[in-house]
């Protein structure tokens, strides 16, 4: 059973379609060569090859970066790592000793005896370097 609302809704006029609308749709579609010949779901070749080149480049970079790291599957060599750590610590201490030799004197003494203190410092460095060189050859 229809009520007054349905009757009122029925009084709505149908929409007028402008003349030549279908032709305008066809013209909009097929006057543009790209839309007319475009295949659905297909990517233009140049765009696809660009993506492929980018992917290949990223893969190559990833491999190059990965080459510097240890293989993930390789077991951890505890002994070798400890030796490496010991060498690193030794070199740090060696550098520390050399840096100690470069201790800057007090400002007063430095200002007063610059020539003497410089030559003495250089001799000490030279001596330290000889020690380090001898240790390195062991």
């Amino acid at each position: 059973m229809t009520d007054w609302l349905d009757k009122m809704l029925d009084s709505d006029a149908p929409a007028e379609v402008p003349e030549g609308f279908a032709e305008s749709v066809m013209s909009a579609l097929f006057s543009s060569p790209q839309i007319a010949t475009e295949q659905p779901h297909s990517m233009p070749f140049m765009k696809a090859s660009g993506f492929a080149a980018a992917a290949a480049l990223m893969l190559a970079v990833g491999i190059w970066i990965g080459q510097g790291s240890k293989p993930m599957s390789a077991p951890i060599d505890v002994q070798r790592d400890a030796e490496m750590a010991a060498v690193n610590i030794d070199s740090i201490y060696a550098n520390h000793e050399m840096l100690d030799l470069f201790d800057i004197l007090e400002d007063d003494t430095a200002a007063g005896t610059s020539q003497t203190s410089t030559s003495a410092t250089l001799q000490d460095v030279d001596f330290a370097l000889k020690i380090l060189t001898a240790e390195g050859e062991k």
């Binding site: 149908p14 929409a15 749709v25």
Partner: peptide, 14 residues
């Protein structure tokens, strides 16, 4: 496709 447009255009406009 043009026939389809002519058939359904009134419906779409409405």
């Amino acid at each position: 496709f043009q026939l389809l447009v002519e058939h359904y255009q009134a419906m779409v406009f409405g």
